[in-house]
Computed example of a mutant assay.
Amino acid sequence: MATLTPQVPHPATFADKAAFALGFILFEGKMRALFSLLFGASMLLFIDRAEEAARDGDRLQIRRLLWLGLFGYLHFLLLWWGDILFTYALAGLAALPFRHAPPRRLAAGALAIFACWHLLIGGGGLPETWREHRVIAGTASPADAARYDKAEAIVASKTAAEMASYHQGFAAQIAGKLRDQAAEPLSSALGSMGETLPLMLLGMALLRSGFFSGGWPDGALRRLARTGIAAGGTLTLLILAWAWSGGFPPVRMMLIVSAVAALPHLLMALAYAATLVRAAPRLARTALGARLVATGRMAFTNYIACTLVMTFIFYGWGLDLVGKVPPRQQPLYVLGGWAAMLAWSKPWLARYRQGPLEWLWRSLTERRRQPFRR
């Protein structure tokens, strides 16, 4: 619940709400969308390179995605509930049959799926959101108020049980997941397929259109960046005002994150992508750019390493800080994570060809040990 509202597990101060709002404006949904676009593009890059070497790119990609699914499930089971690798493996397999579609048709189909999925979710969530609104406003019927209070009590009980599980040791957490949440990665993947799959398809269309490789005119990229930030940012601020006015209530926040904010998320992610494409040639020649390149080349290793470090800091088998760091202090941990990734990735790649998990993933996909040391 704390991913949806700053009011969990403790009532939020103004600074907590402001920190949560900043993350909502700049990052929530936008980074996930950007990563999904890039994953779709990377699938095609992998296949193209395999086929240039006269190999079966589709078969290698399927094998690669199946291994990614296993890594994702182990990531969920051993470390963190919020894994996205299993979802990406499943969505990648679903996207693969469409890789030969023309870019315009692929983009149109992706946007249609994206719109229909979120409209259905939004429509389905409106009755409960309206009921919550009436309860907060004090205009709900006694029956609706009682129903809402009962739902809130269930959420509070689940949150307390979840917090208790995080305070447990390593083995106890794994046992609890196997007992109570063994199918969670699959249900999460299916529950987010209408977002992840179309974004991957859109990333494939962008790659084929030359978006990532200088094929778009600079003016088109500038217009996309400006329009996406202006329109997406305005919508995001309006949605944030609606959320803040109710104190970030849980049902409303669930509807916002799952459906209402989908369009501004996509608009801002595309704007970010266009901005980065324009900046990349110059940025890559700088010292910071070199470190960003190295960090990106080790994205898999850095993703899992981030989980390992942060769960050690917050879970019971480590420093046990879960529930003790308010939202206003959490950006410090984010900055620390960024600094660590930028600091170690470049020196590592000076000695090794790729990150350790990238090497393992590729070796398993290729079914032979790949070169590792330089």
Results as ranks from 00 to 15, higher is better:
Pro6Met: 07
Gln7Trp: 04
Pro9Arg: 04
Phe24Trp: 13
Leu26Pro: 05
Leu26Gly: 05
Leu34Tyr: 01
Leu38Ala: 06
Phe39Ala: 02
Ala41Gly: 08
Met43Gln: 08
Arg49Tyr: 08
Arg49His: 12
Ala50His: 06
Glu51Asp: 04
Ala53Gly: 08
Asp58Gly: 11
Arg59Pro: 05
Leu60Gly: 03
Gln61Asn: 12
Gln61Pro: 02
Leu65Lys: 01
Leu66His: 06
His75Asn: 14
Leu77Asn: 06
Trp80Asp: 10
Ile84His: 02
Ile84Tyr: 00
Leu85Ile: 04
Leu90Gly: 01
Ala91Ser: 13
Pro102Ile: 04
Pro103Ala: 14
Arg104Val: 06
Arg105His: 07
Ala108Ser: 11
Ile113Gln: 00
Leu120Ala: 15
Ile121Ser: 01
Gly123Ile: 03
Gly125Lys: 00
Trp130Cys: 02
Val135Tyr: 00
Ala140His: 08
Ala140Gly: 10
Asp144Ile: 03
Ser165Ile: 07
Tyr166Gln: 12
Gln168Trp: 08
Gly169Tyr: 03
Ala171Leu: 15
Ala172Val: 08
Leu178Asp: 08
Arg179Trp: 11
Asp180Glu: 14
Leu186Thr: 13
Gly191Asp: 09
Glu195Ala: 11
Pro198Phe: 00
Met200Thr: 00
Gly215Ser: 02
Ala220Arg: 15
Leu221Phe: 09
Leu224Ala: 11
Thr234Cys: 15
Phe248Ile: 05
Pro249Asn: 13
Pro250Glu: 05
Met253Gln: 08
Pro264Ser: 06
Ala294Val: 09
Arg297Glu: 10
Met298Trp: 02
Ala299Asn: 12
Ile313Val: 15
Ile313Trp: 04
Gly316Pro: 05
Trp317Leu: 08
Arg328Phe: 09
Pro331Thr: 11
Lys346Thr: 03
Pro356Ala: 11
Trp361Ala: 03
Glu366Tyr: 10
Glu366Pro: 02
Pro371Asn: 12
Arg373Thr: 13
Arg374Lys: 14
